[in-house]
Write a protein that binds this DNA or RNA. Structure first.
Lengths: 114, 114
DNA sequence: TCCGTAGTTCAGAAATTCGGAACTGTTGAT
DNA sequence: ATCAACAGTTCCGAATTTCTGAACTACGGA
């Protein structure tokens, strides 16, 4: 398994953030991570809406979130702990993440942090 | 030519907004419209960066922006006047558009409203 | 060592995007 | 009325991207 790539704060690009969160499934995962304190794992999530997300897709979602700079992933034993980089991100793109999560929050049945 | 479709304010979805603005070219067009008062046309734009955007692509960009709810297009004689729906949008998704434009504004050589 | 669990990588099918060429619709000139 | 020019749209094939089942790697117990 290749080492995980995380972009430096200054290399994070707005188009990558928007792309990553333009997928409601990914946005839901991110919202869940934002709410879940820290250390959300792939399998602790399992299913977010009615649909069971295949694990290869799930893995890919986490990769996109990671490489866009939205989350930090760290292997811990057999599992992968994920946490958001919200604080850093808000420093770089003020208000962006919050506005996006708020926007999604207004749609019933869409990503909720919990 | 089919009549132009514009979603009602309440039908505008955050994923559509993010998708539309995740493309830097489209974001640049939108930023340009935001800055250009009102009535930006396809051809008044022509080229935004170094690249000349093919007109079929340009047409498609405007369509995506329109159908996501970001802009309002209206035929005026031979050309198409476009304006943003910023005010409405800020009502529905507070702070979202501004945060996105600000985020892009921080990248040198990226979308600037002008 | 062998098994189970967590997650990644691979590969091919399906879906999407891109853009040149042809087309539509409008205006103005002859 | 006909024609030409212009603004923008639609069509469609090529190239790219996304999705996901299956095979694989990595780690931790027993």
């Amino acid at each position: 398994m290749r080492p995980l790539f995380h972009p430096a704060l200054e290399d994070i690009r707005p188009e990558a953030i928007l792309y990553a969160l333009a997928d409601p499934e990914r946005a839901a995962i991110f919202a869940w991570l934002s709410g879940a304190g820290c250390g959300g794992t792939c399998s602790a999530l399992g299913q977010l809406g009615e649909r069971v997300i295949p694990k290869s897709s799930l893995s890919n979602h986490f990769k996109v979130l990671r490489e866009s700079g939205l989350i930090l992933s760290e292997r811990q034993g057999v599992e992968m702990r994920n946490q958001t980089r919200c604080a850093e991100l808000d420093d770089r793109f003020p208000g962006l993440i919050k506005a996006i999560l708020t926007a999604y929050g207004q749609i019933p049945g869409q990503p909720k942090a919990d």
